[in-house]
Amino acid sequence: MDVVISLLGSVAIEACCLFCFSIGRDRKALKEETEALVELRDKAKVKEWLGEVEKFLVEVKSLETSIKGYERRQNQSRCSLHCSQRCKFSKEVGMLLKDVRRLTFAGSFSTGMVNHGPSAPPSTEDQATA
């Protein structure tokens, strides 16, 4: 009887060790796959941020066009008392300035999160040197 219990005990220990080994391997896989998932999440955040930046740049360009048109009309007109329009532009510029600061702060991604592949838009440094 002692031999049977001894054999069953050693089989149980071996099964436990195999199970523990499996847990260790699974934990390692879980960690690696979780890191890959976090990386995908971070890339999605970068894409979302890039979308916000693109919308912002359209707003800035539209405002610049409006201001230039206003200034051109002002140069052709003798009266420069259009304070309400200048105040409106000033408020819009202030709001856009807050947005650019928010986007700049939100764009402080770690270097590993940014994909500089062919689908990535050129950076401002690339545009400045072109």
Rank of each mutant, 00 (worst) to 15 (best):
A130V: 11
L18M: 15
M113G: 01
A44K: 10
A106L: 06
Q76S: 15
L97C: 09
E14M: 15
G94E: 14
A15P: 00
V46I: 03
H82Y: 14
K47M: 10
L103K: 00
H82E: 15
E14W: 13
L37H: 06
G51H: 07
G51A: 10
R73I: 04
S80R: 14
T104K: 06
M95E: 11
L96C: 06
K45N: 15
K55G: 03
F89E: 05
K28E: 09
R27A: 04
K61T: 14
L50R: 14
L103N: 01
S108G: 10
R86E: 06
S123W: 04
Q76N: 13
S10F: 14
V3R: 13
L97T: 13
E48Y: 09
H82K: 11
K68R: 07
E125L: 11
S90L: 12
F109M: 02
M113A: 14
P122L: 05
E64R: 14
Y70R: 02
K45V: 07
S80N: 09
E48F: 05
V53D: 00
E64I: 11
D26C: 11
R73Q: 08
S77V: 06
T34E: 04
I23A: 04
L7T: 12
K68Y: 01
F21Q: 09
K91W: 08
S84L: 12
H116P: 01
I23W: 05
W49M: 00
V53N: 00
S6T: 07
L63I: 04
F56C: 03
I23F: 05
E125C: 06
E64N: 13
R78G: 13
S6I: 06
E35Q: 11
G69V: 01
T104Q: 06
D99P: 05
L81H: 12
R86C: 12
V114C: 02
G107F: 01
R25G: 05
D26M: 11
E54I: 08
V46R: 01
R25T: 12
I13F: 06
I23P: 03
K47F: 10
S10A: 10
V38R: 07
E32V: 10
E32Y: 13
P121Y: 07
P121W: 02
K43E: 09
R86P: 00
E71A: 09
K61M: 05
K47P: 01
S22N: 10
S108C: 09
G112A: 02
P121G: 01
K61N: 15
C79E: 12
T129H: 03
P118C: 02
D126H: 15
S66D: 13
V100K: 04
M1E: 09
D42Q: 10
Y70V: 01
C87G: 07
V11K: 08
G9P: 01
F109D: 02
E59G: 00
Q127A: 11
V38S: 00
L37Y: 05
A36K: 15
C20N: 11
G69Y: 00
V114T: 02
A120G: 01
Q85P: 03
K31P: 03
S90P: 06
L63V: 09
K47Q: 13
A15R: 11
P118W: 03
T111S: 08
G24D: 02
A15H: 04
S123R: 02
S108V: 08
